[in-house]
Design a protein around this nucleic acid. Sequence first.
DNA 1: CACTGATGTCAACAGTGATGCGAAAATTCA
DNA 2: TGAATTTTCGCATCACTGTTGACATCAGTG
Lengths: 221, 221
Amino acid sequence: MPRRSLTPDDFVEAALAIAARAEPDGLSGRVIGDELGVDRSAVWRHFSDRDALLRAVGDRLMQLALQQVPANLAPRERLRAAGRNVVETFVAYPYVGSQIASRTLQGPGEMAMVEFTLDAIREIGVPHDLVAKYQRMLADTMLSYASMRAALALLPADIRAADEQAWMGLYATAPAEQYPAIAAHVFDLAVVTNDEILDNLINALLAVVDSVIEKSTGREE
Amino acid sequence: MPRRSLTPDDFVEAALAIAARAEPDGLSGRVIGDELGVDRSAVWRHFSDRDALLRAVGDRLMQLALQQVPANLAPRERLRAAGRNVVETFVAYPYVGSQIASRTLQGPGEMAMVEFTLDAIREIGVPHDLVAKYQRMLADTMLSYASMRAALALLPADIRAADEQAWMGLYATAPAEQYPAIAAHVFDLAVVTNDEILDNLINALLAVVDSVIEKSTGREE
DNA sequence: CACTGATGTCAACAGTGATGCGAAAATTCA
DNA sequence: TGAATTTTCGCATCACTGTTGACATCAGTG
């Protein structure tokens, strides 16, 4: 007795809503079904696989991340914003973000993101035959980092707190004879924030892109 | 009727052996138990949690990666080797590698790795107050990238092959008007290998570390 | 109106991590 | 030595997962 007819998009939408809540129960078929008032097996009428569902939702995440990049930025700033937005979006929808970094999504979101980044790298002035090489480095690195941050956001609050304070705990316990460098830097280690690390990482990647700019043509900036 | 007494290390060892096989069944309690000729519930006698087990095995992975770094290398090459070895080890034990990147292991393996990298960065000549900042960037980036590569190695062979050939497929299908940059670079994109990307990433990270070397002291190299 | 294809419901399956209970071995103590 | 205690495993069980197949019901077509 089908109460109503659902489209795959309805399930993607529901999965997004759930993934954003980051409840401890996870993103299971049962929860998705409940969100739509439907049996959990109805999900597999529209997606052959758990993997297929995740890829569809993941591709939507890419769209979300990309559409929040201001359009009128210089190419470097576009790349920076895209990277930050991917991390932000993955963290905002941690159940999906933590699981699809290694998959080729092959949807419109991923296509648009690749097009966007290729274009920005070309515009910066990277030689034509190196554009793809650096795009893949940037994309893979940002995706994997975003995925790790999402997995972090997924941890129960108490465990995350324990992990974050682990370094301060080691400060008290680690013998300075055995770990002199840790002893010398443990406070600095504990103080570094994840957003600082992300900024730092993006800067490093952009710097290496800058270092291969075509010297011959001086038209860019 | 305990046939014999098992230590936590025995389970870690068994988990390593299974994780190295990359069979499609995964690293479940049942498989670990079978490996030791023991019921799967025996695992939780020694580890409170699946998480605790993964952390223990993950810490062992760190030890494995670190102990294969040649001792007599220059600091830059030590960092390069450590990064490569972490990726290699995570890929070699993909079940564990793909899951513990976001956790603080807090074991001797992680401690040794942090000590090792802090020391190398200091030896390169990074100012004292910036050593921790760059260590965390290097470590988090390499861990997350290694984790993604491990997840990739875990995919069934047919899916991985399909993913790798996705770009070539897009070459045929993607409309050049809508995705001009993809059309212009799709062949280059498909040709870039993961190991190239890794080299490229490590180079980028090391370059940014080099850029903050203390200019005042010229004693290094 | 009947027919067909799509879609949801329900029950079932094997598999997971985890828990509580009882038995047996290993260890400790007298 | 022998008794008491602690450790550790086997077994049964739980709730939960993704997935499948049989059945029922709806929408749209001729």
